[in-house]
């Protein structure tokens, strides 16, 4: 039997890779993919908890997370399309209009 801690550790690693990717990549599409990665890491830990604690609430939560992730991807990509149409850039370092 695989201990729960292993799953937590795996989930953490994937999550942190997602965070790091979000922090260092210039391309907004990749950043959105990193967000999906983080959400998947969280889902994984939720399913693992659900399994080990013998409670279905975790899996219900995963369904909602997937729903929200789908919505977020749709909106995020729509924003990206609008942005690309107006500015023709997809790189964050070109989008510093909020500079103080």
């Amino acid at each position: 039997m695989v201990p729960l801690e292993w799953y937590i550790a795996l989930s953490t690693v994937i999550f942190i890779i997602g965070v790091t990717g979000f922090l260092i990549r210039r391309n907004i599409i990749i950043m959105l993919i990193c967000i999906e990665l983080m959400l998947n890491a969280v889902n994984l830990s939720l399913i693992a908890f659900s399994h080990y604690l013998q409670d279905l609430k975790g899996q219900i939560l995963v369904i909602f997370v997937i729903t929200v992730a789908a919505a977020e991807a749709a909106i995020g990509l729509a924003i990206l399309v609008a942005l690309y149409r107006n500015k023709a850039v997809v790189h964050t370092d070109k989008l510093t209009e909020m500079k103080g």
Binding site: V19, F22, L23, T92, T96, E97, M98, K99, G100
Partner: peptide, 20 residues
């Protein structure tokens, strides 16, 4: 302090990550 506002998305994200 306005210098802190770089307008660069990743800098804000790094702030959040630092909070984490």
């Amino acid at each position: 302090f306005r210098k802190l506002q770089t307008g660069f998305l990743q800098h804000y994200a790094m702030g959040m990550a630092f909070g984490l």
